[in-house]
Amino acid sequence: MASMKKKVLSVFILLVCVAGFSLSASAEDKLKVGFVYISPIGDAGWTYQHDLGRLELEKNLGDKIVTKYIESVPEGPEAERVIRDLAQSGHDLIFTTSFGYMNPTLKVAKMFPKKHFEHSTGYKTAKNVGTYMCRFYEGRYLTGIVAGKMTKSNTLGYVAAFPIPEVIRGINAFTLGAKSVNPDVQVKVIWVNSWFDPGKEREASEALITQGADVITHHTDSTAPTLTAEEKGVYAIAYHSDMSKYGPKAHLTAATHTYGDFYTKTTQAVLDNTWKSDSVWSGIKEGSIKLAPMNAAIPAEVVALVEKTTKDIADGSFHPFQGPVKDQSGKVVVEAGKSLSDEELLGMNYYVEGVHGNIPK
């Protein structure tokens, strides 16, 4: 009897050990995916949109993966440390989501050649580093149409982060959209030299309103411009996310972008061992760029024009940088019947006609 009990106990212990090993192996088999964020996630903005994509990834591939994010990581040495820590802790796929993470990402990727890295908004790749970006300028053009139709002062304000091609493209596309419906419009720009600084964004917004802007927009991460517009009784067009709850009267719409589909496809490719370094640039056609719901104050004919232009961009019959386009000096930079190539867009370093001021060096 004692011998039988020992056998039963031995079998039980063996089963527990096997079960424990299976659970451990299952956990270890999951692909670890890391995300590095420039600002707090919050409930709106650039980082918020990326985190929505991460959550969609978890929903789609949850039983195959485990994700981890680090938020509010400064660009530079700290970013390199965080990216390296993720690689060292077993993360085989790492998404770095700010322009200034480009060189740190490349540096760490060189140390971990068997890991996969994806950098958002950058232009440098490597064998194990891909890049991805949305065609933000497409949404900017559409919101420019709205701003050009809604302004009464013919002065629009733009709070800008850093003078890199991505931001300059947005300013120019917004201006071209506005001037397509209102040739008298002018766009004033204030640079805050930060992706996320609510204080500076508020100060810049207030300054633009003082200078006569009755519609303001931004290429920064916080809700400060929309909040300021609501307080000052002017209109705002948000960026990254729908920010209407921060300015029910002010918020006209927003140029938004989504990443869930890209994150899912990229992660699945790593799981399938089919991942390859690539430079992905998606827009309205792919569903990456969308406008937030329109404010009821926008006339129906303006909404219809935006919807038509959206379809035209999606099917390729219209390009936001379709000629003729002139720069600030009046020089034609895009001839009639032509449009800018992706290479030309990626290197944009000039303002189009209608933008006031100079690009900081």
Score class of each variant (00 low, 15 high):
residue 230 E to Y: 09
residue 230 E to P: 11
residue 230 E to D: 07
residue 230 E to N: 10
residue 231 E to A: 14
residue 231 E to K: 13
residue 232 K to E: 05
residue 232 K to C: 01
residue 232 K to F: 02
residue 233 G to A: 10
residue 233 G to K: 06
residue 233 G to I: 14
residue 234 V to I: 07
residue 235 Y to G: 14
residue 235 Y to E: 10
residue 235 Y to P: 11
residue 236 A to I: 12
residue 236 A to K: 07
residue 238 A to V: 02
residue 238 A to H: 10
residue 239 Y to C: 09
residue 239 Y to V: 04
residue 241 S to Y: 12
residue 242 D to S: 04
residue 242 D to I: 07
residue 242 D to F: 06
residue 243 M to E: 15
residue 243 M to R: 08
residue 244 S to Y: 11
residue 244 S to L: 14
residue 244 S to A: 15
residue 244 S to P: 13
residue 245 K to I: 10
residue 245 K to E: 08
residue 246 Y to G: 01
residue 246 Y to I: 01
residue 246 Y to D: 07
residue 247 G to P: 06
residue 247 G to N: 04
residue 248 P to Y: 10
residue 249 K to R: 11
residue 250 A to S: 14
residue 250 A to Y: 08
residue 250 A to P: 09
residue 250 A to K: 06
residue 251 H to P: 09
residue 252 L to Y: 08
residue 252 L to M: 03
residue 253 T to I: 06
residue 254 A to S: 15
residue 254 A to K: 03
residue 255 A to F: 11
residue 255 A to H: 05
residue 255 A to K: 05
residue 256 T to A: 14
residue 256 T to K: 12
residue 256 T to M: 15
residue 257 H to E: 05
residue 258 T to R: 07
residue 258 T to E: 11
residue 258 T to N: 06
residue 259 Y to V: 00
residue 259 Y to F: 15
residue 260 G to S: 04
residue 260 G to L: 08
residue 260 G to E: 00
residue 261 D to W: 02
residue 261 D to F: 07
residue 261 D to T: 13
residue 261 D to S: 02
residue 261 D to K: 15
